[in-house]
Design a protein around this nucleic acid. Structure first.
Lengths: 129, 129
DNA sequence: CAGGATCCTTTACGATACTG
DNA sequence: CAGTATCGTAAAGGATCCTG
């Protein structure tokens, strides 16, 4: 994106069609990141995934998987067993997204203490007023 | 975070309190990223910001600014002029967050074409069925 | 100018029930 | 097993009006 003011020459982040915005929307999706993270470790089946990602509803899981697959970030393989078996795995494209996400994770781990301290200061200042 | 399965030894991303999740939530916030990006360019006042970030409502802008300030990512300076003047600027902590966000932006710009192609394939495959 | 308070609509999401 | 469909609630967000 190059963070900056609107500029006709480069993608305008204010535009819903801006690539960065679309990716940010995906990253911002709690479940999408968790699913991608799990699949980065290796292929998993639907219900196994559901068990491992505690708290996700089956609706959100299937919805998240469909969107990730549609974007080419993960791959879905169905086997005609009885009952049917479906295995999800990370796609090459999705693999390339893992590093930037991890960069953000490292920022979070490195600076979270500062953020929390800032919040305490802010809340205390409010209290005083 | 280190994307991976739940593991008692490292922060559990499924936990709402996980630092990574909290940061991801913030980054996922459309307006927060845009505001931070604009402030990275230099200090701006409220209504100027509102004009530059096309499409943001005053409610969302003030709400976003408050959260960013609370997290220590930006700074708010009020001047007792008449009428009052308030200038927002990026804080040192916020500055350190710019790079990881830009990494994500670069990923988006680099791979968006692939994502769009994947979507077309996916949608066409559905159509065929 | 820089917001707070209110209302109202839209969306997200969980829970539940059903199917190939 | 791996989902889809439906429903109801809760939360997000825009529009509008008001104020120091």
């Amino acid at each position: 994106m190059k963070l900056g003011p609107a500029d006709a020459k480069r993608p305008n982040p204010y535009d819903a069609q801006c690539p960065t915005r679309q990716i940010l929307d995906r990253i911002g999706d709690k479940w999408a990141v968790l699913v991608l993270g799990r699949l980065a470790e290796g292929p998993v089946r639907f219900n196994q995934l559901r068990r491992e990602i505690e708290g996700i509803s089956q609706k959100m899981l299937s919805q998240t998987l469909r969107e990730l697959e549609r974007d080419g970030l993960i791959h879905r393989a169905a086997f005609a067993t009885v009952p049917v078996t479906v295995e999800y795995s990370i796609a090459p494209l999705g693999q390339t997204l893992v590093a930037p996400i991890e960069a953000l994770s490292r920022w979070a781990e490195t600076h979270m203490a500062d953020v929390i301290a800032a919040r305490l200061r802010y809340d205390r200042a409010l209290q005083a007023a």
